[in-house]
Nucleic acid binder design. Structure first.
Lengths: 272, 272
DNA sequence: CGCCAGGTTGAAAATTGTCAACACGTGTGG
DNA sequence: CCACACGTGTTGACAATTTTCAACCTGGCG
């Protein structure tokens, strides 16, 4: 399980933060000094359980994991898939409660950052703390979109929508090649994420295949016509703060003023 | 719409925070000095829209509101109902994005606190900032439970579960009397919250009524046998951090260390 | 008085789930 | 090297749940 302890430059942390905001040289230096551990986890292994405290935050570099919860009779809801570039345990570290399970899907290699070391970084560079808290919130906000999907959309829309969602998230970190990506997930798990039976997932995928909207070979999914797929999905570009960059004035103002012991600039008034 | 501007002692804010954590005298003093405005909003009025920044956080004292999103064709998902005691706009103020609409259901009377004034409070009493951020996260975590409900449970379980959920939340703020509460919501809205058609909500309620588990007269809902209703709902006491008190070491540590090296005394460690 | 929103109900239709069978590839043990 | 088990994907037939459509009822209110 664990491996390669000790300290090393935290390039994964730098990459993660750089994707969210433009970093100053000073900030880059501070991030590079954060001690990290390279961690590898085998496939299909519980990463974090219910109620457990999280000694470190994991930044996924390769591999997939997922959040889920089981009902007493075995029904399972998958809340979200965690992809390369995602952080695991951030909300738990911050808020101290964990109401879901997390398990790996494939082999996951990640960078582990101890919580106190992250604190130390934020202390030196409060803006980075704001960025990461903001990112945790953004990650959580996906739950709301999924609630909308499962509550209001039919099977075709749901499957199409989730494929587009995964496509876009993977594309943002360079994990899409030639319009295709690897989805290391059985149809049963897809069903558990979408609130559908695996049989119906299968049928829906067949329909999408016959429409020429999805080409599946093994676990490779190719989406030849994203625009058409988005149309099927009823994809709403405005709804999600998807590609939105960090400008979290609120949390940033909060962090900044806490750190300076003085209230700095007021949050700007909203327009539109 | 708005009314009674000016400053006054923020008893609503005190009550809100006192429900979440034990307050020291010093903290109470600081809270009491926060300027607030009493606000009243008529029923069925948009409170906050998409993308709008929030000039103030609202603490609901009486009345109901709800978060929702509309699809292009008019389908509506209600994400959550906001009850007396809930805060509105906290996440938006913190994270600077709003991917949902909020509207009143009934007349809502609330205490409005300007964001800069809250910042000033947190600056003086960082632990209170941690408490409120933590509360915002806890509020968001309900979305996950609703996702579980809608994804995995059938109509009976969903309706029963939501009634129990509302009952418990209302009871926590003293809004249940004689095992009954007022649900100022049409069956259509209930359906939009549960991912069901209003006709099916109606039929499911009829079934629950005939089981003697729910007594409805107008918008008064009485739950004579909560235990049985919880059984129907597959209610899982362990799943939700429902009655959990604040001890968020993570966010608290973060806030504390950010503020360290500064003026005032350290926030006390949480005792659970 | 009559309108209208919301609740209620039945019947029919659509969607989705369940059951059962088979296909296919991979890995393992004989 | 083959046979077999096993996990996963695929499909058809059928069942269950849920939605849709269309009434009708009720109470509040202009």
């Amino acid at each position: 399980m664990a491996d390669s302890a000790g300290r090393s430059a935290s390039t994964a942390l730098t990459r993660k933060l750089a994707r969210l905001t433009a970093l100053s040289d000073e900030e880059r230096d501070a991030i590079a000094r954060v001690p990290v551990r390279q961690r590898n986890f085998p496939a299909e292994r519980t990463l974090m359980g219910w109620g457990s405290l999280v000694p470190e935050v994991l930044l996924v570099e390769a591999g997939w994991a997922f959040n889920y919860w089981l009902l007493a009779d075995g029904r399972r809801q998958i809340f979200d898939f965690l992809l390369p570039g995602d952080a695991i345990g951030l909300r738990t570290a911050l808020f101290g409660f964990r109401d879901r399970m997390t398990a790996t899907l494939t082999l996951v290699s990640a960078t582990g950052v101890a919580w106190p070391d992250l604190i130390a970084l934020f202390e030196e560079q409060p803006r980075l703390g704001a960025v990461l808290v903001w990112e945790a919130a953004r990650q959580e906000s996906r739950l709301q979109r999924y609630l909308l999907d499962i509550g209001q959309r039919d099977a075709r829309e749901r499957v199409a929508h989730r494929l587009v969602d995964l496509y876009e998230r993977l594309a943002a970190t360079g994990n899409v090649r030639g319009g295709a990506f690897t989805l290391p997930v059985t149809q049963e798990m897809l069903g558990d994420a979408l609130g559908l039976s695996f049989v119906h997932v299968n049928r829906t995928l067949r329909w999408l295949r016959r429409q020429g909207l999805v080409v599946v070979s093994g676990r490779r999914y190719e989406l030849p016509d994203i625009a058409a797929l988005k149309r099927i999905a009823g994809y709403d570009e405005t709804a999600a703060p998807r590609a939105q960059a960090f400008d979290g004035e609120g949390i940033q103002t909060l962090f900044a003023s806490l750190f300076r012991g003085q209230s700095s600039g007021m949050p700007e008034r909203g327009e539109r």
